[in-house]
């Protein structure tokens, strides 16, 4: 039997909002480690990997590893029925074909439950090796989202270039071109406002902007975003969820013809 009680239920809501437009159907895996998902978008260009560690839950019971196939857009619809401060409990019976979502208001005066049918989803699981990246940029997530949105008004691709000068985001389109440079900035009042660049070697990679823009839907989950870049490798765009887990997006680069 599975019973997971998440006091900060809004986390699950935000996670679904972050991935529902990228992935249609996916398996949520539950094990002693936590509640996780790995899935690719339909064109296999992007991959999302998320984890809510078991410690993130007030009560975490998962008797055996279980994989639950769900339509993410329907799951997002169900989660939208929860209040912003609701406690969310997920329940499933062993061998059952449904997942129950229970929403409790903070003062316990309203309790709702929604049952969703599980689906059989044939999904491919990819092994992602631990890699030393040539450059790692940590910056405010809202700033990154703003840059991606601004550039998407100009072009379809984003070149991310890290040098010792800083990180440069560039695009080019029919109306012209744009470059936005962010320099390392650690002299800020709040650590979440810092931009930190760790660079082993300069690196430039080009990506489809619409995917990067879609990843920024995870912005409400974290004040900071981390971009990990290496030549000829997918970029990793990571939003850490406090001490509780993460959501990582992997995006394959575009290369010159």
């Amino acid at each position: 039997m599975l019973e997971l009680r998440l006091v900060q239920g809004s986390l699950l809501k935000k996670l679904l909002e972050a991935i529902k437009d990228l992935v249609t159907d996916a398996n949520f895996d539950c094990s002693a480690t936590g509640f996780s998902l790995q899935a690719m978008d339909s064109s296999h260009v992007a991959l999302v990997s998320l984890l809510l560690r078991s410690e993130a839950f007030e009560h975490y019971r998962c008797d055996r590893n279980i994989s639950m196939g769900l339509n993410l857009s329907n799951m997002a619809k169900v989660l939208r029925c929860s209040g912003p401060d609701d406690i969310i409990t997920l329940k499933a019976d062993d061998g059952g074909d449904s997942l129950t979502f229970m929403f409790e208001s903070p003062n316990q005066d309203k309790i709702a439950d929604f049952e969703m049918k599980l689906m059989d989803i044939d999904s491919e699981h990819l092994g992602i090796p631990d890699t030393e990246y040539q450059a790692i940029v940590r910056m405010p997530s809202a700033e990154f989202a703003r840059i991606c949105k601004d550039l998407s008004g100009i072009g379809d691709t984003i070149a991310i270039s890290v040098t010792k000068e800083g990180v440069k985001f560039s695009t080019r389109g029919d109306i012209g071109s744009a470059n936005i440079v962010c320099r390392q900035n650690t002299s800020v009042d709040k650590p979440e406002d810092a931009t930190i660049i760790e660079m082993e070697e300069p690196v430039t990679l080009t990506f489809a902007l619409r995917y990067i823009n879609s990843f920024t839907k995870a912005t409400p989950l974290s004040n900071q975003v981390t971009l990990s870049l290496s030549s000829d490798l997918p970029v990793v765009v990571e939003y850490k969820i406090a001490e509780m887990g993460y959501i990582r997006f992997y995006l394959a680069p575009k290369i010159d013809e």
């Binding site: 090796p129 992997y250 394959a252």
Partner: peptide, 14 residues
């Protein structure tokens, strides 16, 4: 502009 690579070209199925 450019050729879009696929994520499966980088990571192996487990």
């Amino acid at each position: 502009r450019g050729v879009q690579l696929s994520i499966t070209e980088f990571y192996k199925s487990t």
